Amino acid sequence: MMRSLGKQTVRTHYQHIVAGVHDPEHDHTHETRQTVYERPDGTFQINYMSGKRFVMATNDGSFECVHVVQTVRSASGSTIMSVIAGAQSLAVNRLNAVIEFESGDRWIEIEDDETARLAAGLTQTAVGHFYHEEERLEGRHLRRWFVLVGPSEDLAVVGKVALFVLPPHETSVDPEVVDCHIAGYRNGNPYPEFAAEIEALAAATDLPITPNYMGDPVVTPPATGRTPGL
């Protein structure tokens, strides 16, 4: 029988293979908190989408694994990743925005599995997985989920911040899940860069979006000295 070790830090190291050649410039590491299970043979695994993924224990008490991303080129020379980026831009443009800023960034509410998968691809986080897990564990989507999308220097559109928040009238059946969780692109800290956008979303929705980074409170977000234009 497997033994649950509870929520642990799990780092997934993504290695990108483009046309059969390793491209280290696109490699990145995704860090999140997930439930780790110890198997009877002493190995460890996590739930990943609809399957399982093996992870290895590290010296600092966390766990890690490597995921290889294969990218091929089309006959025109474009990579499949560039084709996906174009499709993501079109998909985002069809979604209704909660708030739009002069910068081109806008908050989109995640209200279905398709939007959650899109948000996961744009933010390079596990937001799609956790959105799916919420319905499985809670029986419905009681939290509200948002993603801040907009242009970047390298991509046509990217997910800059993802967050969920539990409305005041809702009660979660899982005491391990925080009421509000905010993370930036590839799980980076969205503060102070996007503090103004997060505050604007809280004001517009009247939701208890408390400043935090992956559930840990940000007591005093550094002042950005700006107000995003609406």
Rank of each mutant, 00 (worst) to 15 (best):
V161E: 08
V161C: 11
A162P: 01
A162C: 09
A162Q: 05
A162S: 10
L163D: 08
F164P: 01
F164Y: 08
F164L: 07
F164A: 01
F164H: 08
F164I: 03
V165H: 02
V165F: 04
V165Y: 07
V165K: 08
L166I: 12
L166R: 10
L166E: 11
L166P: 09
P167L: 08
P167I: 08
P167E: 03
P167N: 07
P168A: 03
P168G: 01
P168K: 06
H169Q: 14
H169F: 05
H169G: 04
H169E: 14
E170I: 13
E170C: 12
T171V: 10
T171A: 02
T171G: 01
T171F: 03
T171P: 00
S172T: 04
S172V: 00
S172Q: 08
S172N: 01
V173S: 11
V173K: 11
V173I: 12
D174M: 13
D174V: 09
D174W: 13
P175I: 12
P175R: 04
P175C: 09
P175G: 05
E176H: 09
E176L: 08
E176T: 11
E176N: 03
V177K: 12
V177C: 09
V178I: 05
V178H: 14
D179A: 09
D179S: 11
D179P: 06
D179F: 04
D179W: 08
C180M: 02
C180I: 09
C180A: 13
C180D: 02
C180Y: 06
H181P: 02
H181F: 15
H181A: 02
H181L: 00
H181G: 07
H181D: 03
I182W: 00
I182G: 02
I182A: 08
I182V: 15
I182P: 03
I182N: 05
A183M: 14
A183I: 14
A183T: 14
A183S: 15
G184C: 09
Y185F: 15
Y185G: 02
Y185E: 11
R186W: 00
R186F: 00
R186L: 02
R186A: 03
R186G: 02
R186H: 01
N187I: 04
N187H: 12
N187K: 00
N187M: 03
N187G: 01
N187Y: 11
G188A: 10
G188C: 00
G188P: 01
G188T: 15
G188K: 13
G188L: 10
N189E: 00
N189K: 07
P190V: 09
P190K: 10
Y191Q: 13
Y191G: 01
Y191S: 04
Y191N: 13
P192T: 11
P192K: 09
P192D: 03
P192A: 08
P192Y: 07
E193N: 04
F194C: 05
A195M: 02
A195T: 15
A195K: 07
